[in-house]
Design a protein around this nucleic acid. Structure first.
Lengths: 406, 406
DNA sequence: GCATGTTAATATGGGATTTAGAATAAGTGG
DNA sequence: CCACTTATTCTAAATCCCATATTAACATGC
């Protein structure tokens, strides 16, 4: 039994406070009368809850609304400046820190270059100074920072915020990032893998609002996913759910870095495309990538495709096809309402997206395929930074009973 | 927002009552003092809750325990005869009805033959009379029946208890089974697909006790699964989660009944094995199945394998291998703590199970493969009947906050 | 401009439940 | 027989919600 929650007046209070707070957050300017109407709570209860929330600074009265035949209602909204949230997107070569207000607006962000050889201590220090820079710029007191969310490359232990062996970070093994950052900054830190952050971000700020079953698939150098079921982030038993890069699509496919054969990541990821391009050229294919044969990059490949390079286009199309089949598998297993695709390959190549979408719809079990929507990520290039921030919002707004996005 | 739960004294009461009830259920004979200790509730609260539960007949005092240095504790248990539950396993050719007491013991069961051409009305009537037979035999008043759980073949709508188009049931389309049965019997009915029932049964009565993330895979004529995540049954957006029979394993595989190519069900199900056996014999393979060429059954194939028939053994081994690869995919996507395999192929062929187990462990992403346990079903041949009953137990024992199996 | 009705918000008293702490009951061990 | 421990019951106080009455502010029609 994870955590026994007993019923007492405190629980009631928490339940109702968070219910009211979340309603004010979601339904924008709203009167107490409407809150009473929607929740079914007694007016006195609503009044007391709102009084509490106002005294905590979370909610503010913004003036009277229009009358509908009687006394004008006092409208309530979230106070955007009541609390702030730090988002942090950690990659092997870049580090972005952003400051969000309570309604999820990005106020400032800073990008720091990062070398694979940088130590955890150096990175933590850079995040700390980045955070203080942002706070200074926005003139925000650190006391108003509700927490920091970190989107990091997996595999990791989300509960304890420990990075196991992030790719391309030399010497990083079992780094207790959460603990280090909390010590360095003094604010609560929530670490999760990038796929999960992206999923939560989409549910919180994007087209996933109100969606209870959603999967976010990141197609980048590698392939990973974040999964939301029953309106909550699903991490599996060891933060390993969503390793869709390593599902077998092709029984006789090439060997993958994980040791198996025919994994999705081995045939449809950014890395795989680059490898395939090199192989094709060596086999004699003509392509504008030929001069770069020994160090083709994904960006070059995408650029070549934009310019109509046949090899690049074929590779992307095939990538989309394989992705589509994998997505069909995901649909058959999870029967989600929404699948969101993100990552460099999706963002820069409509071809990949459309092919994947088409094949997923064709190949998934028809009843399920009809219902699922498959869309590209809606939060632009900072989707992982927003997702990192959303990790904190989830904790801030969740009560014992209201089931919230992720 | 699905259902707004507000906090009031009634919620408190429900939370604590169900917490105490569930504790008594799980920890067997237990004293109020221990309940207080474990839950952290006040003694008065525990006393009142227990008083309520006793007056409802759900809990009974069974005498004093041994002293540990002070007054002897009065021990509490569930009253097995307080309520009863009907389980019903519906298949195209057979119908089993069983009567379970509150602690999950099967008191009586009846098997009825069923023809594919039987109408829903006939089946409902047979279930009704079956139920009354059982109640008469056990001398149980129908008022004590908490509900009926039905494990049925998918696809179906579990919420409304509607069977869409169950295989091999002629003329069954959108049958509102829940509604029909509730009208016929007067007790609450919970319909779910067989995979889900099996999963819940395993969590409730089998090796899945206390497991929060589990997947039950049924390998029979077809292949399906039931999924438990966060300790709750996961049905997906349209009761379609767990259609693992239709995930693509082999890009260039044979056509499946669903219209795609290389689905697991098309290459590793009972139906597929029978088809493959016929094909192999026609191609000239020698086998003791040859005389039955035009109507080979799965049982014959399994018997042949037991007798050492090379073709049958090879087919089963290949089946296990393919299953193992599919299971590895499931592990990579769900990262469950436990995978349970059931169904005719698993129950009758250790070869299939062991091969599948081995390959799944070899092919899944290593971090996840190390943690997952893969075991055969533990509830014998009535696992689906038990699962059907468990569907009701879930409703009976779940409170607003205690997260229970399924 | 005033009476009437409507909507929003506040104030008051009552009820349900938990909690804390004292009191009681029933043991153990020396 | 006494000191100590454990289990249980009893009583009073606290907290929170709810129902109802009341006040406040506005719209509308005459």
């Amino acid at each position: 039994m994870a955590q026994i929650i007993t019923g007492n007046s405190d629980l009631i209070k928490q339940v109702n406070r968070s219910l009211v707070l979340d309603l004010i957050r979601q339904r924008g300017p709203i009167s107490k009368a409407d809150v009473k109407q929607i929740t079914g709570l007694n007016f006195t209860t609503v009044t007391n809850a709102v009084k509490d929330l106002i005294s905590q600074g979370l909610v503010q009265e913004i003036g009277y609304g229009t009358s509908s035949g009687g006394r004008r209602p006092m409208l309530l909204t979230l106070n955007p400046e009541a609390r702030y949230v730090i988002g942090c997107h950690l990659q092997s070569t870049e580090l972005i820190v952003g400051l969000y207000d309570l309604v999820g607006r990005l106020l400032y962000s800073e990008s720091h270059s990062k070398l694979p050889a940088d130590t955890p201590e150096m990175v933590v220090d850079r995040i700390r100074t980045g955070m203080y820079n942002l706070l200074a710029k926005a003139e925000v007191d650190i006391k108003k920072v509700e927490g920091m969310g970190v989107a990091a490359p997996g595999p990791l232990d989300a509960e304890n915020g420990v990075l196991y062996t992030p790719p391309n970070m030399l010497g990083w093994h079992n780094v207790p990032l959460k603990q280090m950052l909390e010590q360095a900054t003094g604010v609560p830190v929530f670490v999760d893998k990038d796929g999960n952050a992206a999923a939560v971000g989409e549910v919180w700020f994007g087209k996933g609002k109100g969606v209870r079953n959603l999967i976010f698939i990141i197609v980048d150098d590698g392939i990973g996913a974040g999964i939301v079921v029953h309106g909550q982030l699903y991490r599996g038993s060891n933060t390993g759910a969503g390793e869709i890069g390593h599902i077998t699509i092709d029984l006789d496919g090439p060997r993958c870095s994980c040791g198996n054969y025919g994994c999705l990541e081995a045939i449809a990821s950014g890395f795989a495309l680059v490898r395939k391009a090199g192989e094709a050229i060596r086999r004699g294919a003509t392509s504008q990538l030929t001069p770069h044969l020994n160090n083709i990059t994904l960006s070059q490949l995408l650029t070549a495709a934009d310019a109509g390079d046949k090899l690049a286009c074929d590779l992307l199309e095939e990538c989309g096809r394989l992705l589509g089949i994998a997505i069909a598998n995901v649909v058959n297993m999870y029967n989600p309402e929404l699948i969101v695709l993100g990552g460099k390959l999706i963002q820069h190549s409509p071809l990949v997206f459309h092919r994947a979408q088409e094949l997923a719809h064709n190949r998934a079990f028809s009843v399920l395929a009809e219902k699922v929507r498959i869309i590209p990520a809606t939060l632009g290039d900072k989707y992982l930074l927003a997702g990192a921030a959303a990790l904190v919002f989830t904790h801030l707004f969740r009560g014992p009973m209201n089931d919230l996005p992720a």
